[in-house]
Design a binder for these strands. Structure first.
Length: 217
DNA sequence: ACCCAGGGTCATA
DNA sequence: TATGACCATGGG
């Protein structure tokens, strides 16, 4: 089974996912940092706090003390680390000239520039480039590695960049496709053989070795 | 009570 | 380059 067929099956089963949940591009960037190793439900609380304090802008986040910011984002966990990361990102973002200046960059240069910021690793950079700037960069996360390893399409030991190259070389470079595909990988991983096993209904189960011969499936 | 969630950095070998 | 410690809340 190839990548496009897997996408078609997931898309048909789950329908449009409407990612990333955010009102603005800047909110996507903040959410991308806050959701590092953290459940999204906790990120929502933190972003709601920032909105209630009228602090959901790069200028506002920088003008807050680090401790004050940490208290606002407390529900998202790692709040001291993330307060530093958010301010590092916002400082860089403003120095670089904000959204329009970054949006003028070619996609690869944009990805590398964002990746160079303190507190922004490979996945966070990809989230921002794809979901805030609408550029065709494929997001590699633990779900992606795990799912496609179980499907037997990758070993699972590849580097982050090797996996990203594999997906981007195997798919048309369309941001709408990458956007939807990553969202589908996440919903499928949460839905399938974890909290709520889909068993025989899983749209990928028939070709997924992981599901074969397991009692719960 | 335990497990983990839409990771990343830093110190050590 | 490759592990390990560390960061921390909230829901199952």
């Amino acid at each position: 089974m190839q990548l496009l067929e897997i996408y078609e099956r997931l898309s048909k089963y789950y329908g449009p996912r409407d990612w990333w949940p955010a009102d603005t591009a800047f909110e996507v960037m903040v959410g991308a940092i806050l959701t590092q190793n953290t459940a999204w439900s906790n990120v929502v609380k933190a972003i709601d706090n920032l909105k209630a304090a009228d602090c959901l802008s790069a200028e506002s986040i920088n003008s807050l003390s680090q401790d004050r910011l940490a208290q606002l984002i407390r529900p998202s966990g790692y709040y001291n680390v993330k307060a530093k990361r958010l301010q590092a990102y916002c400082r860089w973002y403003l120095e670089r000239g904000g959204f329009d200046a970054l949006d003028a960059m070619p996609t690869d240069a944009m990805r590398e520039a964002i990746l160079s910021v303190y507190g922004v690793g490979p996945e966070t950079a990809e989230d921002i480039v794809l979901y805030a700037f609408n550029r065709p960069v494929f997001v590699i996360d633990t779900y992606t590695r795990r799912t496609f390893s179980r499907l037997g399409l990758v070993e699972g030991t590849e580097t982050h960049e090797e996996l990203r190259q594999y997906f981007q070389d195997s798919l048309p470079a369309e941001s709408a496709l990458f956007n939807e595909y990553h969202a589908l990988i996440v919903i499928h991983a949460k839905d399938c053989c974890r909290k709520k096993p889909l068993c025989g209904q899983c749209p990928l189960a028939m070709d997924c070795d992981y599901f074969k011969g397991r009692e719960e499936c």
